[in-house]
Computed example of a mutant assay.
Amino acid sequence: MENQIADKVVVITGASSGAGRATAFELAEGKASLVLASRNEAVLEELAEECRKIGSEVLVVPTDVTDNTAMHRLAVKAFEWKGRIDVWVNNAGVLAAGTFDEMPWEAHQKVIDTNLLGYMSGAHAVLPHFKRQGAGILINNISIGGYVAVPFGGAYTASKFALRGFFESLKGELTEWPDIHIVDLFPAFLDTPGIQHAGNYTGKVLKPSPPVYDPRIVARSVRASIIHPKSTRYPGGAPWLFKLGHALAPEWMSKITGMLMKGYFKIADPTEVTDGNLFNSVNFSMSTNGNSRPRLSPQTKRMISAGLLLGGAFGLATYLLSKRTGTV
């Protein structure tokens, strides 16, 4: 497996923390040639040195994914470094939480610029190189938020739903390029510092909704996607269940999620409103894990799974009954 990773030129955006950082370590162990990108150059240099100690060659290119010119410059520098780009990992992302109409419009716009246009910009920058080579793998860390809405995270949800549609469109566009692969990853919530870096306009301490997974599951999915590219992957077990629940009962899923979040805000500890890392990089919690709790016990996982399946079954039964009675 390592031999299939060794010397691959891999660009990773959002590499300074969370899933991007975990992916850098995962691929460094396989001796990939890494191009690390994010806004925080100092943290990238520290990460690069750690990856070099593991045995990987590393190029650091400070990049803001909301700047299309900078993204094209990233692609050019990566290509000039080794004469090719084998893999591009779109990973940089931000979150802004709060009541939609009470949040600054600029916060919504920044989420869209980063999460949606940043990924599109990555594709726009790297595809000419892939086409020139006749091959390449574009991996997108989208999240299960591409299927299941996140109340109080409207722009985040809009960006993730849009990403799923955009890359489905692009896959259809690239059918004449059989050796250019697009892989979409849909993990559930990850234990990363992202929740600590979020723009938080709720006035309450944010915590990720369970089940919470180690970001290394995304890193392993990236490695697997380099070795065996496939259109979609669902790291961890929960994303499949969330996707099924949404497919069978989308309205039920949205209402339940909204009720759970409103219930949490009633008991959550207060905190100051902050823009987080929306407009500028931060210099705290720049690690792989965010030490989020709680993680789920096997019993709780089974309860959630049963609830999602029952809700989905209820939604399907309601739909079939409505169709039979002519109310749909």
Rank of each mutant, 00 (worst) to 15 (best):
P62N: 01
P62Y: 01
T63K: 00
T63N: 03
D64K: 01
V65Y: 00
V65F: 03
V65K: 05
T66V: 00
T66C: 04
T66M: 06
T69E: 02
T69D: 01
A70D: 06
A70L: 00
M71V: 08
M71K: 09
H72A: 09
H72N: 09
H72K: 12
R73I: 05
R73M: 11
L74S: 02
L74R: 02
L74C: 02
A75Q: 09
V76C: 07
K77S: 04
A78M: 04
A78I: 03
E80D: 13
E80S: 09
W81C: 00
W81L: 00
W81A: 00
G83M: 06
G83V: 02
I85W: 07
I85G: 02
D86P: 02
D86N: 11
D86C: 02
V87W: 06
V87M: 04
V87R: 05
W88Q: 03
V89N: 06
V89M: 07
V89A: 09
V89Q: 08
N90A: 06
N90H: 15
N91V: 07
N91A: 04
N91Q: 04
N91K: 04
A92E: 12
A92M: 03
A92S: 10
G93A: 04
G93R: 05
G93V: 05
L95W: 08
L95R: 13
A96I: 10
A96M: 05
A96D: 10
A97F: 06
A97D: 04
A97R: 15
G98Y: 10
G98F: 14
T99E: 15
F100L: 14
F100E: 07
D101C: 10
D101Q: 09
E102N: 11
E102M: 14
M103T: 03
M103I: 12
M103W: 08
P104E: 10
P104D: 06
P104W: 00
W105L: 14
W105I: 14
W105Q: 15
W105S: 13
E106R: 11
E106W: 11
A107P: 12
A107F: 14
H108L: 12
H108P: 13
Q109F: 11
Q109K: 14
K110C: 08
K110D: 11
V111D: 07
V111M: 11
V111S: 05
I112V: 12
I112R: 09
I112M: 11
D113E: 15
D113L: 15
T114F: 13
T114P: 12
T114N: 11
N115C: 12
L116E: 02
L116T: 12
L116H: 08
L116V: 08
L116D: 09
L117T: 15
Y119W: 06
M120V: 12
M120C: 14
S121V: 13
S121R: 14
S121E: 15
S121I: 14
G122L: 15
A123T: 12
H124C: 09
H124F: 10
H124I: 06
A125L: 11
A125Y: 11
A125C: 05
A125N: 03
V126M: 01
L127A: 07
L127I: 10
L127G: 05
P128T: 08
P128W: 01
P128Y: 09
H129M: 03
F130E: 01
K131S: 11
K131W: 03
K131L: 08
R132Q: 09
R132G: 01
Q133V: 02
G134T: 01
G136R: 04
I137T: 13
L138T: 01
L138A: 07
I139P: 02
